[in-house]
C-alpha cells in the first residue's frame, strides 16, 4: 500500500541484498523438492530391485496404479469427498461452538470460574477415547464421525480463544468504558475484532485436529471415507491402498491448511 511508494528507488547495494535473499529462498525450495524426489526415486528403485519388500512398503508406481483403479471403480471421489466434508463440518463447528462458548465464559466470569476445572479435565482427556460411546449414542454414521471431529477441537478452541480474550489489554476496554460502552459493545468493538488472529490460528490448528477425529471415527465406523480405506487396506493386507489413502489424506490436509492461511491473509488485512 503506502509502503510500496517509498520503495521505488532501489540502490545497487539494496538490489544485491534482495538478489541474495531471493537466491537463498530459491535454494531452500530446490533442496526441499530434491529431498522429495530423491525419497520417491529411492523408494521406487529399492522396491524394483527387491531390496525392500513392496508388499509391505508399497511403492510409488503401485500407489499411482491404485489411484487409477480406484478412480476407474468410481469410488475414489466418494471416499475423498466424504472425509473432506466431515472434516470441514467438524472444524467449522468446533471453531464456531468453541468461540461461542468462549464468549459466554468471557461474559460471565462466574461461569468461567465454575467451568475451569471441567475444561482442564476434558482437555487432558483423549477425546477419541469417547469414540465408541458416541457411536452407540448417535449411531455408526457420518454424524458420529462429525461429532468426534468436533469434540477433538472443541475444548482446545474454548481454552485458546478465551485466553485470547483475557489477554487483551485492559486499557483497551477502559478506553471504551470512558465512552460509556456497554458490555455488548465492548464485545463487538474490541474483544472479537482483536481476537480474529487468535480465532484464525485456532481454526488452523482445528483443521489438523478435525482430521484426527474424522480418521479415527472412520476407523471405528468403517463404512466409507479415507479412514475406512486405511483400516480396510490394513485388514486385507493391501498396503498399496493404505499408502494411497495416506497420500490423498496429506494432500487434502495441506490444501485445507492453505485455505485457512489464505483466509487469514484476507481477514487480517491490517498486517502486511
Amino acid at each position: 500500500m503506502y509502503n510500496k511508494n517509498n520503495h521505488k528507488a532501489v540502490s545497487k547495494e539494496h538490489a544485491e541484498y534482495i538478489a541474495k535473499i531471493k537466491k537463498r529462498k530459491l535454494l531452500i525450495r530446490l533442496t526441499q523438492i530434491s529431498i522429495l524426489i530423491i525419497f520417491i526415486a529411492l523408494w521406487e528403485l529399492t522396491a524394483r530391485l527387491k531390496i525392500i519388500d513392496a508388499f509391505i512398503t508399497s511403492q510409488p508406481s503401485r500407489i499411482i496404479n491404485t489411484l487409477i483403479s480406484l478412480h476407474e471403480e468410481g469410488t475414489l471421489w466418494m471416499h475423498i469427498s466424504i472425509s473432506i466434508l466431515e472434516t470441514i463440518v467438524g472444524f467449522i463447528l468446533g471453531t464456531a461452538f468453541g468461540t461461542a462458548i468462549a464468549i459466554i465464559l468471557w461474559w460471565s466470569d462466574f461461569a468461567a470460574k465454575v467451568a475451569d476445572p471441567y475444561l482442564v479435565v476434558l482437555n487432558s482427556l483423549p477425546k477419541v477415547a469417547l469414540g465408541p460411546i458416541i457411536i452407540v449414542w448417535i449411531g455408526a454414521g457420518p454424524f458420529a464421525i462429525i461429532t468426534m471431529a468436533l469434540l477433538v477441537s472443541l475444548i482446545v478452541t474454548i481454552i485458546t480463544v478465551l485466553n485470547g480474550f483475557l489477554e487483551i489489554n485492559p486499557d483497551k476496554i477502559k478506553l471504551l468504558q470512558t465512552f460509556g460502552a456497554t458490555k455488548l459493545q465492548i464485545l463487538k468493538k474490541v474483544i472479537l475484532p482483536a481476537s480474529i488472529p487468535t480465532i484464525i490460528s485456532a481454526l488452523k490448528i482445528n483443521v489438523g485436529m478435525s482430521w484426527v477425529g474424522v480418521v479415527v471415527g472412520e476407523f471405528l465406523v468403517s463404512k466409507a471415507g479415507l479412514g475406512h480405506l486405511i483400516v480396510y487396506g490394513g485388514q486385507v493386507f493391501k498396503l498399496d491402498l493404505v499408502m494411497t489413502s495416506i497420500f490423498i489424506l496429506s494432500i487434502a490436509a495441506v490444501l485445507m491448511y492453505q485455505f485457512t492461511a489464505w483466509l487469514e491473509k484476507k481477514l487480517i488485512k491490517w498486517q502486511n
Binding site: 486499557d171 483497551k172 480474529i196 491490517w270
Partner: peptide, 13 residues
Amino acid sequence: GYMLQQDHLFEWR
C-alpha cells in the same frame, strides 16, 4: 473525554 497513557488505537481500524 479520557486520553490514556498509550494511544490504544485499534490496529484493525
